[in-house]
Amino acid sequence: MTQDDAEVIALGALGWLAQADLLDAFQNSTGADRDTIRGAAKEPEFLGAVLDFVLMDDMWVAGACETLSLPHQELLAARTALPGGNLPHWT
C-alpha cells in the first residue's frame, strides 16, 4: 500500500469517527480541538494517529471498514504505510 492510499483510508476513518459520534472521544484522547483536526488532517503523522485511535477497538475497526467497504486488515496495512507505523514484529 502506498502512503497516498493510506492517507485516503485514514481520511475516510476520520470521517467515520465524526459520523459514528466518536469525534469527541478522539478529541479527548488526543487533546486536539476541531480546528486543529481540520488543519492537521493533511498531515501523514496525524492521519496515523487517527488510525491508531480506530485500531484500539475491534468494533470501531469493524464499523469503519464496513462504512468504507474495506477488509478489516486494510486499516492496519494503511497504518503501517504512514509515518510511525513500521512497528517491529516480536515473533
Rank of each mutant, 00 (worst) to 15 (best):
M1K: 05
M1N: 08
T2Y: 02
T2L: 03
T2F: 03
Q3N: 06
D5W: 01
D5N: 05
A6S: 12
A6K: 05
A6Q: 05
E7Q: 15
V8S: 14
I9M: 04
L11Q: 08
L11E: 08
A13N: 08
A13H: 06
A13S: 06
L14W: 08
L14C: 10
L17Q: 06
Q19S: 14
Q19D: 15
A20V: 04
D21W: 00
L22A: 14
L23N: 10
L23R: 11
D24I: 06
A25P: 11
A25Q: 13
A25V: 10
A25N: 14
F26S: 06
Q27W: 07
Q27P: 10
N28W: 01
S29R: 11
T30F: 06
A32W: 02
A32V: 00
A32R: 02
D33W: 02
R34P: 10
R34K: 15
R34E: 13
D35H: 07
I37G: 04
I37T: 01
R38W: 00
R38L: 03
G39T: 11
A40G: 01
A41I: 00
A41N: 10
K42T: 15
E43H: 08
P44M: 00
F46Q: 05
F46G: 02
F46P: 06
L47F: 12
G48F: 00
A49L: 15
V50K: 09
V50Y: 08
L51W: 02
L51Q: 09
L51M: 03
L51K: 04
D52C: 05
V54E: 15
L55S: 13
M56G: 14
M56A: 13
D57W: 02
D58Q: 12
D58N: 13
D58G: 13
D58S: 04
W60I: 02
W60Y: 09
A62Q: 15
A62C: 10
A62D: 15
G63Q: 01
A64P: 05
A64N: 02
A64W: 00
E66T: 10
T67L: 03
S69T: 11
S69Y: 06
L70M: 10
L70P: 12
L70V: 04
L70I: 02
Q73P: 15
Q73N: 15
E74K: 09
E74C: 12
L75W: 06
A77T: 12
A77M: 05
A78P: 08
R79L: 04
T80K: 13
A81K: 04
L82G: 10
L82V: 05
L82Y: 10
L82P: 13
P83N: 00
G84K: 01
N86A: 11
N86T: 03
N86E: 13
P88M: 05
P88G: 01
H89G: 15
W90M: 11
W90S: 09
T91A: 14
T91Q: 14
T91L: 11
